[in-house]
Computed example of a mutant assay.
Amino acid sequence: MTRNVGGLDRVLRIIIGLALIVATATGTIGVWGWIGILPLATGLIGWCPPYAIFGINTCKTEPKQEG
């Protein structure tokens, strides 16, 4: 599994995921808010299956060091 979620994308996924989970846990929104587990997980792991399918990569890769 090569990381395909990076930088700002990861931060936004984690914030949105946590916000949805907290809103659901406090009763602010309905049970659909548990969907926040998905962006939270992909943000923490750094890999998103749909990104892999469509060839999207927001993760900056570092050039390999020679020598």
Rank of each mutant, 00 (worst) to 15 (best):
6 G>E: 03
6 G>N: 03
6 G>V: 02
6 G>A: 01
6 G>I: 05
7 G>E: 00
7 G>V: 02
7 G>P: 05
7 G>F: 00
7 G>Y: 01
8 L>P: 00
8 L>W: 14
8 L>C: 01
9 D>K: 02
9 D>W: 06
10 R>V: 04
10 R>I: 04
10 R>P: 05
10 R>S: 06
11 V>L: 10
11 V>S: 07
12 L>Q: 02
12 L>C: 06
13 R>M: 02
13 R>F: 01
13 R>K: 01
13 R>Y: 01
14 I>V: 14
15 I>C: 11
15 I>A: 15
16 I>K: 00
17 G>I: 02
17 G>Y: 09
17 G>F: 09
17 G>K: 00
18 L>Q: 00
18 L>R: 04
18 L>I: 14
18 L>W: 03
18 L>E: 03
18 L>M: 07
19 A>E: 03
20 L>M: 15
21 I>V: 13
21 I>K: 06
21 I>F: 11
21 I>R: 09
22 V>W: 08
22 V>D: 03
22 V>R: 02
22 V>G: 08
22 V>A: 12
22 V>C: 10
23 A>Y: 04
23 A>M: 15
24 T>H: 13
24 T>V: 14
24 T>Q: 11
24 T>N: 11
25 A>I: 08
26 T>M: 11
27 G>H: 07
27 G>W: 05
27 G>K: 05
27 G>I: 13
27 G>V: 13
28 T>N: 14
29 I>L: 06
29 I>S: 05
30 G>M: 05
30 G>Y: 01
30 G>Q: 07
31 V>N: 10
32 W>D: 05
33 G>N: 12
33 G>R: 10
34 W>Q: 00
34 W>K: 04
34 W>M: 08
35 I>V: 15
36 G>Y: 11
36 G>F: 12
37 I>Y: 14
38 L>F: 15
38 L>Y: 15
40 L>S: 09
42 T>L: 04
42 T>E: 12
42 T>Q: 13
43 G>W: 09
43 G>I: 13
43 G>N: 11
44 L>C: 14
45 I>L: 06
45 I>W: 06
46 G>C: 12
46 G>Q: 06
47 W>T: 07
47 W>I: 08
47 W>H: 14
48 C>D: 00
48 C>K: 00
49 P>N: 08
50 P>I: 13
50 P>K: 05
50 P>M: 01
50 P>N: 03
51 Y>F: 15
51 Y>N: 12
51 Y>A: 15
52 A>R: 05
52 A>G: 08
52 A>C: 00
52 A>I: 00
53 I>W: 12
53 I>C: 01
53 I>K: 08
